[in-house]
Design a protein around this nucleic acid. Structure first.
Lengths: 331, 331
DNA sequence: TTGTGCCGACCAGGCCCCGCT
DNA sequence: AAGCGGGGCCTGGTCGGCACA
């Protein structure tokens, strides 16, 4: 299999010039006469020659490949932001390669210029470990704790969670429960911490922890949990730490004939695409994904400066009001 | 930036052995005494050495990297199957790297062992062009027309479309329209062709083409189209060529107070995750994604045999009955 | 002797310094 | 001065060979 690919040497031989000349023609770093230039290019074209990237990277110690490490490629939240980042890297001459797995071998080798990590389920320790291995440009898309050699561009969970709980406070529904994500997730940890703070101060209650249920950030688990809780009629407000889980809550409500926005209130986080397609629309926390993606790419490229030090950037969140919260007056 | 990484030569120097010895220790192709082995490994461990993949690939002319080219990473259909393929490649020692773009430069270079193409919007000509460039293992996940140097493992659109239209035939709703995808998409072409055939034979009508509307495979466009059509009350059955578009139809129906499964019928294709979370559940065409992924990986690995010839495999489709079609009697 | 254990040296493809005409 | 080429080098794999028991 895999026919041998044509090399620069073959091009040189056929064109009757040296390898050096072909190389110069291809990357235009030196003046070459128009005559040889066209001759070489014609042969390159004809033989469909492409430089061997391994050889190129090896020699130049440089690469325009950027990895994106994600916990799962099958997640709307991940792919929505990934699509934008991909696009922005592309316009700057970098190619984004998405890969999954805890810490794949391949990122420890040096075919990549650097990478970004978009991963709900990577603990701080995992990140430190990763940063030790990838001694290059690295941007993490979650968390707030500075890392030795990676920048952070993450969403502002604190303001986001505050916005949504303040909105929910306007509802007559006050028997709140929290459907949260996996404990390893940094975003989950942050959302949990700030929720507790607000719950205590705004709702003036001290029994936060007993109203927290794990939905593992996925709709099926959240569905199971919600179904049980609804049957026992313990709660009339469901604060989901992401939109996927809100979807599971919607499904449970539909099954039991509960009207969302009337009988119960439901909130999400992330504003992924289907949250506006639900009936009623899901009130959730949005973050401008375009700005986020832009910040990620800029932060990444900032490593190109000599002596650049890692930075931490927080992307502001806003409230996306729809109809899943019942409000006292219809404001 | 990017501290210089440690090389095999440094390891050799520190261990007081030759590079050859270190190399043999690392890939165990030759007997090395236990004593030197442990000594070398200790230093490798300590300096956190990882072989330079570019150098390795260059020398061995071999790679365990597989690309997955997709039109968009932000599509549930793509990511659901991708996640499974990723996993199966992983268990066979290959690393899957997902990338987007028409024909990215990087796949023409030889850092990849080969790749798969999962792309609704790549025409046959694009595929031929791609196959010319990637003269290696290649598996395409759509289409039926044999390619010179790539295998095909695609879903059986014909049987899928037949199943769903036969089911719809049991409904009293007979004013059918078809919401289809972009014309370049091979899957769209196949679904369109077979729909026309069945429409003519089963429903015995000859005016197929005037009931076809383009929804571009995305929910927003489908929503716009559906809203207009519903307002004019021209149709009571909406056959969507994928589930995303069915989502748009659901939204339009909700807005106009139309009950799906009662006032109108809606069908999908692909059975992506949220189709079972909708209310009512979406009746759609399912394909066993696990079998599909398995077939893709097996087909890919078959290229390892000498003189392997490209193959074409069709993955069977089945009907996922839910409640979005109104049936005459409640069977 | 006949291995066993190790090493020197070359090779893979392409970039680019430096020197030649 | 303008155009071109020789050859070292980036890193790691591997073959033939050599020393030593």
């Amino acid at each position: 299999m895999s026919k041998k690919s044509v090399t620069i040497k073959e091009i040189a031989d056929i064109a009757g010039v040296s390898v050096a000349t072909v190389s110069y023609v291809l990357n235009g770093k030196k003046k070459i006469s128009e005559k040889t230039r066209t001759k070489v290019l014609a042969i390159v074209q004809q033989l469909n020659y492409t430089p061997n990237l391994s050889a190129q990277n090896l020699r130049t110690q440089d690469s325009k490949l950027v990895f994106a490490l994600v916990n799962s490629i099958n997640s709307s939240f991940n792919t929505e932001i990934l699509a934008k980042i991909d696009q922005k890297f592309d316009s700057r001459g970098y190619q984004l390669l998405t890969l999954t797995g805890k810490i794949p071998e391949v990122i420890r080798t040096n075919i990549f210029d650097g990478g970004i990590v978009l991963n709900y389920n990577l603990s701080f320790d995992d990140l430190e470990d990763l940063a030790r291995h990838v001694h290059k440009k690295m941007v993490i898309l979650s968390g707030s704790t500075p890392l030795k050699s990676a920048s952070i561009v993450s969403m502002d969970n604190e303001s986001g969670m505050t916005l949504i709980l303040e909105e929910l406070y306007k509802s007559p529904h006050k028997r709140i429960c929290f459907i949260c994500g996996p404990s390893e997730s940094i975003n989950n940890q942050e959302r949990l911490a700030i929720s507790e703070k607000i719950f205590k101060s705004l709702f003036q209650r001290d029994d936060f922890s007993i109203h927290v249920y794990n939905g593992f950030f996925n709709s099926d688990a959240a569905y199971e949990v919600a179904l049980k809780l609804m049957k026992s009629d313990s709660y009339d407000a469901f604060v989901c730490f992401n939109d996927s889980m809100a979807l599971g809550v919607y499904q449970a409500a539909a099954e039991l004939g509960l009207k969302i926005g009337e009988d119960i209130s439901v909130t999400g986080f992330d504003n992924i695409f289907f949250s506006r397609h639900l009936t009623p629309g899901l009130t959730t926390v949005a973050i401008d994904k375009d700005s986020w993606a832009e910040a990620v790419v800029e932060t990444y490229l900032a490593f190109n400066d000599e002596n650049h030090e890692p930075t931490i950037t927080k992307i502001p969140a806003s409230l996306k009001k729809r109809k899943s919260i019942q409000l006292r007056d219809n404001t």
